[in-house]
Simulated assay, not measured.
Amino acid sequence: MNKTISIILLALTLTACSSAPAYRAASGSGYGYAEQQISDNYYRVTFKARGDDKEAAKAYALRRAAELTAQQGYDWFVLVDKETLKERETAANNQLGVTYQRDIEQKCTLFGCRTRTVNRPSYEAGVGVGVSSSREHVEVALEVRMGKGVSPENQQVYPAKTL
């Protein structure tokens, strides 16, 4: 009886985890949206999603940028920079390999701030038992500048969006 209840609870837990909405704030797993303020009206917005759908990840990042623009009291935003990262992680029975940790560095001058992503290698070796597995994810990072009133004519302008 206890074994049957345990199996049912495990199945329900797995179903709840797999049905988590794609658009959400990033949590411990890192999947979802996050933002970092660079200056008063300049933000870096990221969206990390499972799978390899770059267009969906970009759409979610733009959605978050529009919501953030409205939350900050601005009318519109423009894309200053865009970066798309696609990664595949593989876990094998026996492994020897290198992974990369991404760090974001910010450098500010009198003319503004710029951020860049730096990959630092980490070397691993291990022996495991079981079946190998693979997991893929895509991450889109947008740097946006927000504004009020009349929008610039020579740039792609996106409107603010309330929740």
Rank of each mutant, 00 (worst) to 15 (best):
K148F: 02
G30W: 05
A57N: 07
V45F: 08
T99C: 04
E87H: 07
T99A: 10
Q155T: 14
K48I: 06
L68D: 04
A125S: 07
V98A: 07
R102P: 04
F47T: 03
A11V: 07
L68F: 01
E67I: 03
Q106R: 11
N94C: 11
S134E: 10
K161E: 15
W76N: 04
V150P: 08
E35T: 00
Q95I: 09
T84K: 04
Q95L: 08
G73I: 13
G112F: 10
A11Q: 07
L163T: 01
K86S: 06
A26Q: 09
R50W: 13
L10H: 01
G130E: 04
R44M: 12
R63M: 13
R135E: 15
Y33W: 15
Y60L: 02
G73Q: 02
V144K: 03
V131S: 09
A34Q: 10
R63G: 01
A91C: 03
S134C: 07
Y123A: 01
Y31P: 08
Y31G: 07
A34Y: 09
E55L: 12
E87F: 11
T115A: 11
M1C: 10
K54F: 03
H137Q: 14
D103T: 06
V129D: 10
S122H: 12
K3A: 10
L142D: 02
Y74T: 08
A56R: 14
D40W: 14
A22D: 11
R116E: 12
Y100T: 09
G51K: 02
S18W: 03
A26I: 01
Q71E: 13
V129E: 07
S134I: 15
C108D: 04
M1S: 13
V45M: 11
L10S: 09
A61L: 09
G73A: 02
G32M: 06
T4R: 06
R145P: 07
K54E: 13
R135W: 13
T69D: 05
K148Q: 08
T84P: 05
E105L: 03
